[in-house]
């Protein structure tokens, strides 16, 4: 039975991605570890502060896993939310699971506790990269309704591998932020087709920013994550130098492009205008022949 990853809550996604019944939560809702900063702003708290963390198995192998709830304050990272993720990453350094799995669904720093959130994001970036140096395999899944933006977009790109759906969105600044700062001519955030062309899974896959592209289906995310449990892990100078060359080349080739179809055309896609309409299998047949390697 197909189940939408986009529509599901964090807990539903998590339950569907890991082996059935295998999830064990750390600092669960009953511990009532909630944000100490929201009450002063008259904002309701959530018993898990918008993120579920714990251990489970995936395809029978041990994983540590976190799932952000985009429905609670946009899944944004505050002090407690960030600290739960940080504890999980540090735990992975000693426990050495087959993977550290992030189900991202977050707009970035939580403004209600902006300073604590910003510092937390920087701690998370450092911790993930440190864990990767130790060989901890970090996998990110992006397909939630809140997308993956701001500080969370940075954290995601610090992972070893990313799985996205076409519906998933990954960027630094959200379209609304750019429109507010620079005007609707720069980025019309209500133009859904434009938003998905620029930030969506297909473009990120073609650019080589995402490693796998799957249907908006919990089981497909699960299968892709399981498949990546044996992918290469680690962070080395050689790998970073290769990435540098790739990013330099991307900038040289596409810096003057105003919209994604121009980039797709230069990559060698025959009918770039059709890309947004192609079903996944047809898209992959086109994309895998010409996309930039991650």
């Amino acid at each position: 039975m197909s189940r939408s990853y986009y529509e599901a809550s964090a807990r539903e996604r998590l339950a569907g991605v890991v082996d059935a019944g295998s999830f064990h939560e750390f600092v669960p809702p009953a511990a009532r570890v909630t944000s100490p900063h929201l009450a002063q702003l008259d904002q309701p708290v959530a018993f898990d502060d918008g993120v579920v963390v714990g251990r489970a198995t995936l395809a029978g192998r041990p994983v540590l896993v976190a799932a952000q709830e985009g429905g609670f304050l946009g899944g944004a990272i505050g002090e407690v939310h960030g600290a739960k993720l940080l504890g999980l990453i540090e735990r992975a350094r000693t426990e050495r699971p087959a993977a550290l799995l992030f189900l991202f669904d977050s707009g970035g720093v939580r403004l209600h506790e902006a300073n604590a959130g910003l510092v937390a994001v920087s701690e998370l970036i450092r911790a993930i990269l440190r864990a990767r140096r130790d060989g901890v395999r970090c996998l990110g899944l992006i397909g939630g309704a809140g997308g993956c933006f701001g500080g969370t977009g940075l954290i995601a790109r610090c992972c070893d591998r990313l799985v996205m759906s076409e519906e998933g969105r990954l960027a630094m600044s959200g379209p609304e932020v750019i429109e507010t700062a620079r005007g609707v001519e720069e980025f019309d955030s209500r133009d859904r087709a434009l938003v998905w062309r620029v930030t969506g899974g297909k473009h990120r896959y073609l650019l080589g920013e995402a490693d796998r592209l799957v249907e908006d289906d919990v089981d497909q995310f699960r299968a892709a994550a399981a498949d990546l449990l044996d992918s290469e892990a680690g962070l080395t100078l050689a790998a970073v130098e290769r990435e540098h060359a790739r990013l330099q080349q991307r900038w040289q080739r596409f810096a003057d492009c105003d919209d994604a179809p121009e980039i797709w055309q230069r990559l060698g896609v025959d009918n770039p205008a059709e890309v947004p309409l192609l079903p996944l299998d047809q898209f992959l047949a086109v994309a895998d022949g010409c996309r930039s390697a991650p």
Binding site: P29, P44, A46, F47, E69, G71
Partner: peptide, 19 residues
């Protein structure tokens, strides 16, 4: 059973913790 959480703290919605 163990404590149980249902729902999400989002606009027009609520979460319930049962114990």
């Amino acid at each position: 059973r163990e404590p149980l959480l249902v729902g999400v703290v989002g606009s027009g919605n609520c979460e319930l913790l049962l114990e």
